[in-house]
């Protein structure tokens, strides 16, 4: 039986969910090789394992805490007591987040968009602010430099012919 590309991609998506949401329950809950090597050398320095590292002889080390608080530290979801369940939730969230981030990033980077795709539409939703600005001034559509100046700089990285962008054109006042 030969699967279509869409079916294969759907199966791959299911595989991601199974790995992140189910197999992650069975992860070996000990420090990884790098963390373990670091711990052992801290211990060899006469420092109790897990304490702050010795200050470097060659320069200041960065602070271990206080720079940034990750919302899901160590793949735990605040409010979810069960560690396995929290890890599974964090895994699904992280995998979904990675998917969305890459989709947006690569849709903006990819140029040869032959047909409208859901991903071009997603990208165009991000761009709709600059498109609206462009449509409210007919001259601005031709003046790409002007459009780029008005649009948010982080989404205007890829000027491309407006017909091949693929997304639905938003009329002012809609959406």
């Amino acid at each position: 039986m030969k699967l279509t590309r869409g079916q294969s991609l759907t199966l791959l998506g299911c595989a991601v969910l199974v790995v992140a949401g189910i197999l992650s329950f069975f992860a070996y809950p000990f420090p990884d090789a790098l963390e373990d090597s670091l711990e052992q050398h801290r211990a060899a320095d006469g420092m109790p394992a897990g304490s702050d590292p010795s200050p470097s002889p060659t320069g200041e080390t960065t602070e271990a805490t206080g720079t940034w608080n990750a919302p899901f530290p160590d793949y735990a979801v605040p409010g979810v007591e069960n560690e396995g369940l929290g890890g599974a939730l964090a895994g699904i969230l992280g995998a979904a987040g990675t998917f969305v981030v890459l989709l947006l990033l690569l849709s903006l980077l990819s140029r040869n968009s032959a047909a409208p795709s859901p991903f071009a539409i997603l990208a165009s939703i991000c761009r709709c602010r600059s498109i609206r600005a462009a449509e409210s001034e007919p001259d601005a559509r031709r003046d790409r430099a002007g459009r780029m100046r008005r649009g948010p700089s982080h989404v205007a990285v890829s000027p491309r012919p407006s017909n091949t962008a693929g997304g639905p054109r938003r009329r002012p006042g809609h959406g």
Partner: peptide, 19 residues
Amino acid sequence: VPLIGLMGAFVFALQMLNF
């Protein structure tokens, strides 16, 4: 692009499976 996004998510998920 969809395949690349899915494979990125797959790698994220695989990295959670400490063995």
